[in-house]
Structure formats: structure tokens, C-alpha cells
Design a protein around this nucleic acid. Sequence first.
DNA 1: TCCATCTTTTGTAGCGCTACAATATTCTGC
DNA 2: GCAGAATATTGTAGCGCTACAAAAGATGGA
Lengths: 336, 336
Amino acid sequence: MTKSRNDEAITMQSVAIAAGVSPMTVSNTFRYPERVQEETRRRVLTIAAELGYVPNHAAGNLASGQSRVIGAVIPSIKNSSFYNYVRGMQDRVASQGYQLILKLADTVSQEAAAIRTFVGLRVAGVALVGDEHEVDALTLLRKTGVPVVESWVYNNPFDMAVGYSTADATHAITSLLIEAGRQRIGFVGYDGDVSRRYTERVPVFRRCVESAGLDSHRIVLVDQADGFSAGAKALEGLCAIDPDIDAIVCPTDIVAAGVLFECGRRGWKVPDRLAVAGWGDYEIASEITPGITTIQPHSYEMGQRAMTLIVERASGIDRRGVSHDTGFQVVRRESV
Amino acid sequence: MTKSRNDEAITMQSVAIAAGVSPMTVSNTFRYPERVQEETRRRVLTIAAELGYVPNHAAGNLASGQSRVIGAVIPSIKNSSFYNYVRGMQDRVASQGYQLILKLADTVSQEAAAIRTFVGLRVAGVALVGDEHEVDALTLLRKTGVPVVESWVYNNPFDMAVGYSTADATHAITSLLIEAGRQRIGFVGYDGDVSRRYTERVPVFRRCVESAGLDSHRIVLVDQADGFSAGAKALEGLCAIDPDIDAIVCPTDIVAAGVLFECGRRGWKVPDRLAVAGWGDYEIASEITPGITTIQPHSYEMGQRAMTLIVERASGIDRRGVSHDTGFQVVRRESV
DNA sequence: TCCATCTTTTGTAGCGCTACAATATTCTGC
DNA sequence: GCAGAATATTGTAGCGCTACAAAAGATGGA
């Protein structure tokens, strides 16, 4: 029961009457304060505050065709992987007078639904994660012309993109293990319907170890939904392939932590018996003992850049086709 | 540049023309399908899909004074504490034809800003966490009459509430340690500007241990922002008070895990040397070795209930003042 | 004093949609 | 075949706001 039509809802009209000015002056006070004389503006703002007036965004959006709300679709908040990304978006957006709203979507079809909601809301822009989306959703975005930025990827942007190279990062972390003298390196990937950001790591890993003259058959896939316990499963699987495995590349720090827990159970010393590499630089990576050597994507910066691109587009700058590489860092800790 | 005014934007009008019906029929097709004849409806839907038409929510909201979007304010996504809560909200809302949008807010003033955004968007309802809010925000909510549900608390609802008793849970977990024969029980609380859901645990803990004839001076406060590392600090602090401490009640599973990590570093056996209790039943609680004994709030159910209340209110049922207790469970694992 | 210029304020029209009432169409039963 | 009911469709008006253009005041130089 949002409010029946002829409630005494506080509208711009009522503020105008109370302040003895025209509705347009109230509108200007909020949207273009500099167009209104100091004194008038102050009076309007005071009255508006007294009355508890909040501009009806729906009406404003409709009249102006513009919106100061940006929508972001986030795959999951199960772990902290997107925490800094969201913080980055939020911080940047706030400093520009925009608002960020979020929708969670675990699957592409949920993502499509989220996109539809955002488009229905006529947001100023949409931020997506990854480059795998439902065709219908993309068609819709293209047709409506909403600015779209894809994050965590940076090739072939649909519209705009901000990310880093998964391939380069995979290469970097694998090379680190090789340089550390490991000979029997295993790789843990994700199973099932998982994003390309994960699947494209396998061939890179293969090439990398092979070019160092090592075997690349120590590969096992686990279920993304398993969280920490995937670590235990992965280690089991890899031991079945090679009981003398001496290093593991994990898809996330969560799996890496799971591997560490399992090593604890087995009484394996890390990194002496087994070197473990993670991905994502989650909080746990630095807190657990031993600390996890991992890939740190610059997610905060990524979030900021994403919003910058959208805000720029919203203010008329053409940024179509732009893609930013925000890079990554290998953070070395005791686990390798 | 959302879209200039006289673009060939796909509107209800254009769908109506293309389908050879009046705009009202298109409107009805989307809002009240049963009012439209099977064949007409199908034709309209086909054309709408072909044209990539998405109803303008802003316009609809303005015209009807109703909205099918619900806003939820979430304190943080740094860890998984709100994961199930959000899932519960999302699932329930989806099955009712509503949409959930999220805003993150770490502080009450950020929360107030989020509330203002939601009110500006004229959402159908607002879900908040906790019962500590900015006065202005509450005034605004009261004035506009938006349905509001507070979660994780269930006393004195501002409008409606869903939660469980922090006091009872504190009592339950402390009693468990006492029954397990622990004599020197320590308590870890959060420092600084932290929600009452945490601070109100201290006196309950005190009373609980005292009524068992034990000392209640082993209390230390840590910084909420510290994550896992708060565990190490907490253990240090408590050892300074009593080096022979034999049990710890932690504010979250994150801190409990941090304590376990620190025990690992010190070579302390858990639970032999020290029993550790957490709170929240985060994923890590069941995955780490030893598993953490913890409080499991029924967050998924809480999210569902919260949305049910809002949807009911939106459909006219008076639920003002209602508060649901969704309870909690003590999950016993090896750490105690 | 008057006109040109600048600043501030105000009507007007319409954004895209839906409530409501009115009209058109189809279906009953006799 | 027709009145009367039930179903399906359609005008009309207006939600609260803003773009735009027009009007009103203020300022200043000749």
C-alpha cells in the first residue's frame, strides 16, 4: 500500500506553495542550485526539509529522460571476492552525485532478469561482471543504448570494459611455482557451467608448465559451490593422479584455504611438502597460516574505473569500445 | 546520455500501434493478463518481444503510485554473514513478482542516504538491518508511510521486524561452554561504533558466567574491521588478563577462525587447551579444522519472512507492529 | 529617463504509463 | 432473434516532474 492517490503526499507543488514560489523554482533549487538566488534557494530548502520532501525520482526520470542511478549486477556475495569492487564503485559514484544499486545474479538468466529490471528502471548505466551474457539481454541493452561496462574482462567489450588478463595472471602464478623449483605442479579448475574467466586458465597453465619441460596432466576439476571443501576434494583428486604432487594452483583463495585445511589434517607441511597458490587475495589469504601466495586483481580500482566510464558516457563523452586494463599483482606469501 | 527525448524509443504506444490495439490493451497485457483475450495477449507479447519493449517502470510507478521494487540496505558484503539473508529475500521476492534491489551501507548515515534513494525511487518497501537508524531517515520513512521491516532484531519494531534474540543466543552459547566444564571463559566483543546487536551481548555473558559461580572479567574488545586478525589480538588480550584461559566466546566465526589460526601458531590444541565458540555459522565454521561451534541464525528464513511482510503490506494487509522471531540454533562442532 | 543586457522566476506542454469509466463485442437463455 | 449479462477493448485525464521559452526584475551606461 504505497500510498493512495489522493493522500496528502508531499510533492514539489506543495513545497512550492509553502515557499511562495513556482514549482519550477523548487525544481531548479534541487537540480541547478546556481540558477536560483541564494535567499530563495535557502527558503525552499528549509521548507522542503521541514515538509520531509523527497523528489520523486520516477517523475523526474520520466520528465527528463535522465537518471542518476546506476545499476550493477554482482554474481555472488558468498565470499568477499567482490567486496572491494563494490566499494570502488560505490565510492566513485557517490563523489559524482550518482547512486549505485545492486542486484545479485548467480546465473546468466538471473543476470538477464536483473538487466531487465535495471532497464525498466531506466538507470543511467549498467555494470556487469564478465563477458558472458544472455543474447536477449544484450539485444535489449543494445536497443535501449544504455551505457554498459563489463568488468573483470577486457577483451572485445560489448560497450566498455575494465579488467585484467586472466591469461597473464595464470602465466605469472604458474611461472612463480616453476621458478620456485616445483616439478610436479597440479592445477585445480572449476567444473560445470562456470565462467570463461576460469576455464580459459587451463590451456594457459598447460602451455606454461610444458614450455618448462614439465608434465601438465595433473589437472582436476571441482564444484564451485563447494567452497572450502573443494580444497579437500581437489587434493584427493590430484593425489590420485600423482601422490607425489608438490604444488597446486587453485582457482580462488577459498579453494587454496581448503587445501591448507586438508594439509593440516594430513599433517603435510606447507610449502615444504606442497606449495599452494590461490587467486583473488581474499582476506583469508593474508590471515591464514601460512599466508597464501595469490593473484591480487585491482578490484577497487576496477570498480572505480567502471563507474567513471559510465558517468563519462552519461555526461556525453563517447567512450564506446573503450577498455581499461587495471592489471594485477602477484602477492607472495609463505604458501609458496 | 540515456536517450534524447525524440529518439525512436520503444514505448507502449509504439507496441500498441504495431499490434493494432490501444495502449491500454498493451498495459493490461503486462499488468492484468487475465483481462486480455488469449489471442490478443499473445500478439501483443510477440510484438513487444520483437521490438524489445521494456515497460518504463518510472512512468508506471508515477501513474499508478505503485511499485514492484523492494529496496534492502545491507551493512556489508565483506564476509558471507548476509549471504543467506539476501538469498532468502531474493527467492521470496521473485516468487511474488517483485524485484529486490540492494544498497550497501556501513554506517547509519550511509544507511540514511540509501533510504533516501529508495524513497526517491518510491519503492514498495524497505528492508533494514538492525534497529539503529538516523532520526531523519526514520522521520522520512514515517512521513512517506513506506512499509519498513527491520531484520536481525525483533523488539520494538519501528514498523515491522524479523529476527532472533541476541540475548538468548548469547546465553545459549555461554551455557554450552559452562556445561562443557570450562571454568575460565573469556569473551570477545567489538570496539568502537558498533551495533547494539554486539554490545548487548556483554552483560548477558557476564550474568551467565556469574550465575554459574565463575569470574566474568575476561573480556576484551577488538576492532570489527580487523577480520581474522582480530582473533589473534583477542587471544593476546585475553591471555594478558588470564594466561590460563580455557574458553572463548567470539562475536563472529571470522574472529573464531582467527583465534583458531593463532592457536595453530602457538601450537595450542583446540578444544583441549582452549574451547572456541563463534557466531553466525559462516561457511568457514564447518570447513575449518576443527569445526567451529557456533550460533546459526536462520538468516535465509529471516530474509524470506522480511519480504513476506512487505509484500503483504503492499497488498493491503495491515501488518504494522508485527514482529517475527525466527529463532536460532546452536551448532555444535569440534571447537568446543 | 530610456534602452540594452543580464539575472531570476514562471507558464506551458508533455514524458510514458495506468485508473477509471465508458463503449464495443460476445455469449446466454428463451 | 433478442434482451440482458458477461467479457473485451478503448478514451480520457492526470500522476509529479523538467525542458524550454517567455516574462519579469535588476543593473548600468548614455
